[in-house]
Design a protein around this nucleic acid. Structure first.
Lengths: 347, 347
DNA sequence: CTGAAAGCGCTTACAG
DNA sequence: CTGAAAGCGCTTACAG
């Protein structure tokens, strides 16, 4: 049943050679319009469907790019994915997607399938634990063009698009200092995730510069999920000495924290300040809207694909490193913190 | 730079013919282990990478399947996507993804690219407006195996996996009647979406059977987004005669309704009952947990891919129609409604 | 402006 | 058990 009509049939039907059909297919202006129309009519009447697989073999391009993420449940990744798909679609490329689930073996498997499928290039958000050795084993041999998003892999040189997470951390810390916070804890996020390290670094540096205490003993990773935030908050609430502010690894984690606080009858923004990162849609829509630093996943995604296309056009150009600046959104979860002293003075 | 090592090179290096290399590649047991090892050693030392494109042309299979959804922002679609990717991955297939953004032209473009790429099969959640004519134009000529998920397209016969949305509607209606609700409105969802029609049908039938008023004049579509729910609720609150219960097209829409109610100082579950469909993660995590009918997106996704693989194995088998039963989760947003009469008797 | 020919990298009967 | 040969459906110089 699959279409077995080839350019041979079209050529025969329209009385030209296969070469001519191919040229018409690709819109080559050398072919007179009359001929082209005859060919197109033949294609339509035969129900011809272009076989890109065959073309791929000849041209050594597939018009397909790969996108490898840890997952797509998180709205941040969903936004990024939609943007990547949009730009790929505009360029006439199809998108192969694979999810590592933040596991190295899974990432390896997904990437090698894509390489076998001969995608023209790959956009990759590496798992937390990825090292340059892992990337070498997959990209080294084949030289598949690729762009890394967001997470740095030390010792690996390639095109990159990322957010300045350090700056985001500093912005949050500065704002918390501004509203009068004197101590903060940083919770959630995958243990060895470079993004987590950068955010924490920025927070600590910003806090230190302003005489705000960064409570190491109250700061710890969990994972990047909402439930990780819930767990983190419960753990934190059971420890002695609540900080003035909790900064969550991400908004998703912050939503978990928010839930746990609510469960204990604590309203974020009053009893305790809460901030996140990313500015996912939900952040602004909470009963107490969440202060957060935007990290623009859609821009990250579209820039990554654009960078990939530039790389395909110019394989020998030096690697580029595009940095997107975060933007702080101040909302009630921190803004109203000033209320706190009067409500429940720090123990 | 891309790997230009072919089976020719491997054959030369290991002193066998290309045919033998190919057989080793595919793990054919006819080749003695000694030979196979020699060949594999040659592949490793040359850095050979299998070129599936070339194999595709020959075998007429691509080991790739397509997934076409309206988008992936909605957690329901994200869950479905993850499940589809999982099953595809297990079967050694890559996944091409495309998003129609619920636009017919976009769906058409995405599907034809996939057909050109010669995917082995397609899992499609059609746009709201898709007719059998649209599907005929894309699938009719090429006969690409495909499975439709969730949304029915009248007059189109194919494999399908879907939720019994009518039953879900009836379950919600029955439960609302049980807690004493005497009138309900149904809001949100894309106007011509078949899923919307089924949910509404079930609600109306369930309501009618129990003497609950289905408030037509207060029921209307918006879209499938959260903001659609917000708009719907605002509109509803401005109309005369608030119903006892609002049923939202989906949990995502219900979250929007919830926000709008909160904005007006109305707590869902007390002032008014609220229910949704799908049971997305957020539903249970709201300050007032949301009553909803689970629609199991992950099961829908994995069943769809399994059905597709069965179709590939057996192209002439009769079409199958897998129906997944919804499960109602009763939570505070409706359970506590009984409080209402005492709070604010109906006008 | 159009056609004949070679070839992309595999797989698969078919011989031996 | 292994090799020679044909062919999947395109594209692309190269002639004419």
């Amino acid at each position: 049943m699959p279409s077995r009509v080839t350019i041979n049939d079209v050529a025969a039907e329209s009385g030209v050679s296969r070469a001519t059909v191919s040229l018409v297919l690709r819109g080559n202006p050398k072919i007179p319009e009359a001929t082209a129309q005859r060919v197109r009519a033949a294609m339509a009447s035969l129900g011809y469907v272009y076989n890109r697989q065959a073309a791929n073999l000849r041209t050594q391009r597939t018009m397909a790019i790969g996108l490898v993420l840890t997952g797509v449940r998180d709205p941040w990744f969903a936004d990024l994915t939609m943007a990547v798909e949009e730009v790929a679609h505009e360029a006439g490329c199809t998108l192969l997607t694979g999810y590592s689930r933040d596991r190295l073996d899974r990432q390896e498997a997904v990437l090698s399938t894509m390489v076998e499928q001969r995608v023209d290039g790959i956009v990759l958000l590496p798992t937390s634990e990825t090292t340059s050795v892992d990337l070498e084993s997959i990209f080294g041999a084949t030289g598949v063009p690729h762009v890394l998003i967001d997470r740095r892999v030390t010792g690996w040189d390639s095109d990159r698009v990322r957010v300045d997470h350090w700056a985001a951390g500093e912005q949050v810390a500065a704002h918390l200092a501004d509203v009068g916070v004197r101590s903060m804890a940083f919770v959630g996020g995958p243990p060895s995730c470079p993004v987590r390290a950068e955010r924490e670094g920025g927070l600590r540096s910003g806090a230190a510069a302003r005489g705000v205490e960064f409570a190491h003993e109250l700061s710890f990773p969990t994972d990047a999920e909402r439930l990780g935030g819930t767990r983190a908050a419960r753990q934190l609430l059971d420890l002695p000495g609540l900080p003035d502010a909790i900064v969550a690894y991400s908004d998703v984690v912050a939503l978990g924290v928010l839930g746990a606080l609510r469960h204990r009858g604590i309203e974020a923004g009053r009893g305790i300040a809460l901030a996140g990162f990313d500015d996912i849609e939900e952040a602004a829509l909470q009963p107490t809207p969440l202060t957060t630093a935007s990290t623009f996943p859609a821009r990250l995604g579209s820039e990554a694909v654009r960078l990939l296309f530039e790389r395909l056009a110019n394989p020998t150009a030096p690697h580029r490193d595009i940095v997107i600046d975060p933007v702080l959104h101040v909302r009630d979860s921190t803004l109203r913190w000033a209320d706190r002293q009067s409500l429940a003075p720090r123990v």
